[in-house]
Design a protein around this nucleic acid. Sequence first.
RNA 1: GCCGAUGUAGCUCAGUUGGUCAGAGCAGCUGAUUUGUAAUCAGCAGGUCGUGGGUUCGACUCCCUCUAUCGGCUCCA
Length: 645
Amino acid sequence: MNITFPDGSTKEYNSGITGLEIAESISPRLAKEVLSVTVNGDLHDLRFPITCDATVILHKWEDAEGKKAFWHSSSHLMAEALQELYPKIKFGIGPSIDMGFYYDVDSPTPITEADLAKIEAKMLELARTGETFVRKDVTKAQAMDTYTKKGDEYKLDLIGGLEDGTISFYTNGSFTDLCRGPHIQSTDIIKAIKLTSVAGAYWRGDEKNKMLTRIYGITFPKKSLLDEYLTMLEEAKLRDHRKLGKELELFHFSARVGQGLPLWLPKGAALRERLENFLKNVQKSYGYEQVITPHIGMKDLYVTSGHYAKYGADSFQPIHTPAEGEEFLLKPMNCPHHCEIYKAKPRSYRDLPIRFAEFGTVYRYEQSGELHGLTRVRGFTQDDAHLFVRPDQLKDEFKKVIDIVLYIFKTLDFKEFNAQISLRDKVNRDKYIGTDENWEKAENAIIEASAEKGLNTVVEYGEAAFYGPKLDFMVRDAIGRKWQLGTIQVDYNLPERFELTYTGADDKQHRPIMIHRAPFGSMERFVAVLLEHTAGRFPLWLTPEQAVILPISEKFNDYADSVAKKLNILSVRCSVDSRNEKIGRKIRDNEIKRIPFLLIVGENEAGEGTISVRKQGDGDKGAMTPEAFAKFIDDLVKTEIKPIE
RNA sequence: GCCGAUGUAGCUCAGUUGGUCAGAGCAGCUGAUUUGUAAUCAGCAGGUCGUGGGUUCGACUCCCUCUAUCGGCUCCA
């Protein structure tokens, strides 16, 4: 029997050998380190006999598959510890996740964060005994029987959803669990354990079900890896946009204004304005026209669009005029307004594509528990645009929008993002409006355009908007949470509902197709993610303050003011730190404020008409005239914003 | 909305078993200093201890309500 390895080499083994034995035959060290094994593309138990020629991959910690097995096994170890500490506990599911694992449990005794240290200690104690993970295959009926006797409704629910056939149990120490595996060979390679948090989670993710307690944890094969991880988490917290937003005085929340309603402070407003102008310029070059629409619209507008039926009950309640009692809704999206602009006059096929852009502020009632800094708010501004196109223009226009998103990401140095194609749920179709035919056309347009643009995409079913499929651009925040930024959506439905038409070359009326798109997603979320990516060190073209002039003493404040005037005229954003403080103090304070350039002026500079330039994190740059410095800044900004290709 | 945790001055945080515990540093203000590349010195002022109830002779401390925030779940036009 031949076993082939990933490097292409082949070795002969006796039939029935296991992955673990193969590792042992290669080296005792590998046998210690191997965490899981892939046989012919499928994950297998390390003790699973291999009986025919196969390709085998032995996974160590360095592999994602190795980590998965390690963390999944750790969740079983935690379950064992929990069972010993809380004998009446029942278990839901306990998978590995991106970083670590969790287990959902139903315990009559509440488990809180205060209990985590105790559970950790128990886990370590059990891990050291070197328990193996022993697999036992049973029939579905036997499995049902086992859990019926135990009175475990969660496991019974899980088994009920499985197909008939073999079901596997894994046992480590005193704990046996329904589990597909695979697992690591022994618990004694789990050397470092940190239970990170407890949280509530609905059974099977359905809010109608009971809420279980979810315990999150992470484990490592070495103590030093845990320390590194904890350090990394600490550093990530320093980049949290909520912390930086406060420190850099960008935005503020007030309970009296209302939760989820950000107040933009002067520096934040300046930053946001610059981002908006940047995008406006890009859009102008792509033929977009700016429009402006009101913050409210009559209820009927949203009844027509279909949004009222879908979200009306879960929205801010209607606003009424005092005399007539007319109902208005706080604008939750801009598309219906833009449809009405399209309808303002007859459109010809020659006019299309028509591209209406607006930085449109919208209000959505998000559940209170869902609010999160600037990334999930109740009032926010979309960098919205709606493109009205002919069918023959759809794919090209979609590709141009992808170009815009990629250009923006490149300019702002977002290297790591995921492009996600969000399609309809395969089964549950009544969540959506529109005909199957149009949905298929829309979905195909997105899939083809993305492929032709060479985008590396993942497809997610059930993630589409209720009126159409989307291409979403996802990025992660400082601690790895995923957020959607840019979105591009194809919509056949709103044009139908608003009876949008254009006159074709055949002199007949035709239906345009709509593309909804927002490359930033929203100004709020984009700024939040940008803050976390840059740790508050914005590119020069964006940063609220590019330079601060630091007079050596108050004697030079007048000279500093004259330099500031000169630089402001030359479009350098700078101010004067005229406080009566020592130069060291001024440097420190302004470094902390992340001002890119510090301009020091004293007797020498005032005499020569120059400024001494100090760059953040890069030290002394020498003296130059204000004019030379302005040119220097201008050149740097030009390297940051590259022309559109 | 649900589960859990937290809420002390503008910010970051101390406050022992309920009894001079309302504090510190930074920021602010005043004065002195007039400074050459990451914190000059001194003084002053700042808080119904998130809100509203309750228990108690007495509550920042214990209990309940509400509210906001944080970690998740659900949701996300």
